[in-house]
Amino acid sequence: MFDILHYAFMQRALLASALIGIVCAVIGVYVVLKGFSFISAGLAHASFGGVAVGFLLGINPILSAVVFVLLTAWGIGWSSKRGQIKEDTAVGIFFAATMAFGVLIIGLLHSYNIDLFGYLFGSVLAVSRQDLWMSGGMSIIVLTTVFLFYKELLFITFDPEMAAVAGVPATALYYLLLSLIALTIVLSLRVVGIILVSALVIIPAATAYQFSNTFSKMMGYAIVVGLISTTGGLFLSYYFDIASGATIVLTATALFFVAALFSPKGRRRKELISNKIVPYR
């Protein structure tokens, strides 16, 4: 069964899948707890514009996407903090505008670029050595930052107001978190694609949430679910010769529904009712 691991492309695919399984799960914990799902979906779509710019300039589309998605993330943050609009409205504007920008540029190129499909839906088996280095580099940046700011990020996620009172630079950390989400999305593009990447950020963390009563447990479980989804999905897609990005996301979704069925949170709620203990809220 492990014969396929002799192929270099399969080794790269496995390594890339494992990497993004971990990074997406870690960032997903903050995304789920802070209610940033729409932001992550919006940023994923914005990366289409970034990839298109890369094709236009003839540079690596992942590089242009990093810059483009970071700028979009800061734009969303700035307009919801400074402006008179709500965060989800800001996402709604940026997400459509950047996508439209991408479509416009692709149209200008006058040649239908076959690789575009790979960026939209992911093509893990086509991950090159260079792609792997870039994803690896960005993963290290994201994971190190989370490690260094672990308690501050936890604090602003749980109670941003109290964090600000305690002297934690809440606004700076908000931008930091947006930047981390942006990087995570771009580094995962090659594997799951623009359309599906936000699912890989959200689903493992949402699955872990069902079973976790502490933050570190939630992160640990999310990493396990993320790893199983990406590597398991990769093997399934290889053996059945089906689309890898879609298989990875559907594996994660299946795990989520299994978890939701056996969630102790649901059971606890039922116990509260049967014991006639009414929870606050």
Binding site: L154, F155, F158, D159, A163, A166, N213, T214, K265
Partner: peptide, 19 residues
């Protein structure tokens, strides 16, 4: 406060020392 947040009592109190 979001009471469904996965965090323990001692970690909530620890936040008071973050400054």
């Amino acid at each position: 406060i979001d009471y469904s947040f996965p965090i323990t009592v001692s970690n909530v109190v620890l936040m008071g020392l973050i400054g």
